[in-house]
């Protein structure tokens, strides 16, 4: 085993060991967790509302801020916040949907994009006014401090927890949508809303709940990210552009597709850090270019 891990070869003139690849690949899963949660939320919202939610990054940031506020203003710790913050931000999302976004469903999709982009600017600007741009610290909960030896690397416990928690939440979302009767109604409403409404289902409420659910996923990712990145109003910005590329690569047609693409691209990013570190920030965009050239609909996309 040790011999295998220390086996090294050369690529582009960089010496590479198997253990480095395994280590960075595993670390890549962490960013992958955030990509998966965020692109899943975007896909769920898009499927139901036909809107690409440009406010997703801002709502992710609100999730992180909600956990920080719960701790500092109410003394509520990390684990309750992991549940409470998504609920609070999700409720805020539902309020937005009911009051503002729902007015746009009859219009061109581009207006939804412009509106949510504007909402994102307002939210970010307000947070920047009250909390500055420098970032606030959020401690890793005591239970999850320390690191575990995985044989090829020391994995910080908190980061392992992020991957696990994100994977569980993504899986639960997938089960809810694909395997339950609520999910069946949801999918039916995505296909043909007037018909589902004719069967007595309250479709507008379903849409509100869907938006709230997608937003809650973003906020959940935000809480997970709070101890890793400092909590600051611009934290969503850095993620969301990459997440849009992830969505283009995966296509928004499939729930499982978004999850797999999110985690997969995180790993690709991690591996790139070993081979050619300078490209790690752009590798997702390069993958997007390749996908556009070979399979413009996206890996899991349906025909437009």
């Amino acid at each position: 085993m040790q011999a295998f891990l220390s086996y090294s070869f050369s690529l582009f003139g960089t010496p590479i060991t198997v253990s480095a690849l395994l280590g960075q690949g595993t670390l890549g899963l962490i960013n992958g967790s955030f990509y998966a949660c965020l692109s899943l939320g975007l896909a769920v919202i898009f499927g139901m509302l036909n809107i690409i939610n440009f406010a997703h990054g801002a709502l992710f940031m609100m999730g992180a801020f909600a956990s920080w506020m719960l701790l500092n203003y109410a003394g509520i710790g990390y684990f309750p916040a992991l549940l409470l913050a998504p609920l609070l931000v999700g409720a805020f999302g539902m309020l937005l949907e009911k009051t503002i976004i729902s007015r746009l469903y009859k219009l061109d999709h581009l207006y939804g994009l412009l509106l949510t982009f504007g909402l994102a600017l307002v939210i970010q600007g307000l947070f920047r006014n009250y909390y500055g741009s420098s970032g606030l610290p959020y401690r890793i909960p005591a239970v999850l401090q320390g690191a575990t030896n995985l044989g090829f690397m020391y994995m910080p416990n908190y980061r392992g927890w992020v991957v696990l928690a994100a994977a569980i939440v993504c899986f639960v979302t997938w089960v809810t949508i694909e395997k339950t009767s609520l999910g069946a109604t949801l999918r039916a409403a995505t296909e043909n809303a007037p018909l589902v409404q004719a069967f007595g289902v309250n479709v507008p409420r379903l849409i509100t709940l869907t938006y709230g659910g997608g937003v809650a996923l973003a906020a959940f990712a935000g809480v997970l990210a709070a101890p890793i990145y400092s909590v600051n109003p611009n934290m969503g910005d850095n993620f969301i552009n990459t997440v849009f590329a992830v969505v283009v690569i995966g296509g928004m047609g499939s729930i499982m597709g978004s999850i797999v693409t999110g985690f997969g691209l995180g790993v690709v990013e991690g591996l790139t850090k070993v081979v050619y570190p300078q490209a790690s920030a752009t590798v997702v965009f390069v993958v997007m270019v390749i996908v556009l050239l070979t399979r413009p609909r996206g890996l899991f996309g349906k025909a437009a």
């Binding site: 503002i100 219009l107 412009l114 982009f117 504007g118 994102a120 307002v122 600007g125």
Partner: peptide
Amino acid sequence: GAWVTVTQGAIFVVCVLAFR
């Protein structure tokens, strides 16, 4: 400062809702 961003965002929202 950041009120520029807030104002810009608000203009987006108002334009899309009332003033396309």
